[in-house]
């Protein structure tokens, strides 16, 4: 493996072409023991895939979608995460078809209150407010609960002067079932991110597959640094809608992370195995390492009278 060597300067467009895989023989394999890679078609040992390779295909580097809890385990130091606003649940404000029943069923199935988990944790020892969305909960879509939790997380970062980190996986965008209230979560979360920016507190946003629509068009795109996992689908309108609109087939790799990087929309693409270290390093550079600058400032201030003549500022009048 060479993932620890110096990263390539430029990430090339397009996904790695999967190696020609032999068609797997039909055999009686117990459910869940093997997982098929949707990219290269290879059968992978689920246990090996999840425990040893962060759910990244060890043949073609395809990044499987992972749920919020596994994401937290990969990103945040063990035992450091304290969840906030765990009690916020959806209220079905529009009495929309079978929404209430669907939410209830999804909650039972996933064990999640809604599509995002927020809290405070440490990433390689650097404290940050962390929010992580979960694609399994109605496609990670943003309704009132997700909007409110993300906003509260960003507000908490502002008050506590802690950097914010969000991992988004909002394939559903704004949640249809809550109508206009969902749309307004875009404005609400974006305004909160704006306040953080004004206050000069870092916000690192990580796109995972897929982040579309209202999530991509609000807080997720407003980070000081935007990171995506390889191959993540990121965009506003979905490819089907675009094709129906322009009556053309879209090129291979359209709206994938590599496409966005080339088009200037991302700061970097980061392999899952390097994500935690990269985020930690960024937290350091943007926030925690500034202690060194403060120390250097204090040192410089002591020398200042001697240096005044080399600075372009006017010298103080004699005796003044």
């Amino acid at each position: 493996m060479t993932w620890f060597s110096r990263p390539k300067r430029y990430t090339k467009l397009g996904r790695t072409q999967p190696p020609e895989a032999e068609p797997p023989k039909k055999k009686d394999i117990p459910e869940g023991v093997m997982t098929k890679c949707p990219s290269c078609g290879q059968l992978l040992y689920t246990k090996n895939l999840e425990e040893n390779n962060n759910s990244v295909c060890y043949l073609c580097d395809y990044h499987f979608r992972i749920d919020a809890r596994r994401r937290l385990a990969l990103l945040v130091d063990a035992g450091s995460f304290v969840e906030t606003d765990a009690g916020l649940v959806s209220a079905d404000p529009l009495r929309f078809l079978d929404y209430a029943r669907k939410v209830e069923a999804t909650r039972r199935k996933t064990g999640l209150a809604d599509a995002v988990i927020c809290g405070v944790g440490e990433i390689r020892g650097r404290r940050a407010v962390v929010s992580v969305s979960d694609f399994n909960f109605m496609g990670g879509s943003m309704g009132s609960v997700v909007g409110e939790k993300v906003t509260r997380a960003l507000e908490h970062a502002l008050e506590a002067k802690l950097p914010a980190v969000s991992v988004s996986a909002g394939g559903g965008g704004a949640r249809m079932h809550e109508g206009m209230l969902s749309l307004m979560q875009m404005a609400k979360t974006s305004a909160a991110a704006g306040r953080l920016k004004e206050a000069g507190i870092p916000f690192i946003s990580i796109f995972t597959d897929p982040t579309m629509g209202g999530v991509a068009a609000s807080y997720a795109s407003l980070g000081d640094v935007l990171i995506a996992e390889p191959g993540a689908m990121i965009g506003f309108a979905g490819p089907r809608v675009i094709e129906q609109t322009i009556h053309r087939r879209l090129p291979e790799g359209f709206q994938r992370a590599e496409f966005l990087l080339e088009h200037g929309m991302l700061d970097m693409i980061c392999h899952r195995s390097e994500l935690k270290d990269t985020v930690a390093e960024l937290l350091d550079l943007l926030w925690y390492a500034r202690a060194a600058l403060a120390a250097a400032r204090a040192e410089a201030a002591k020398l200042r009278p001697r240096n005044d003549d080399v600075i372009h500022l006017p010298k103080p009048a004699a005796g003044g």
Partner: peptide, 12 residues
Amino acid sequence: VELHGDRAFRDD
């Protein structure tokens, strides 16, 4: 840590 892109058109 290299940062890419102009967030508008392309990574130059």
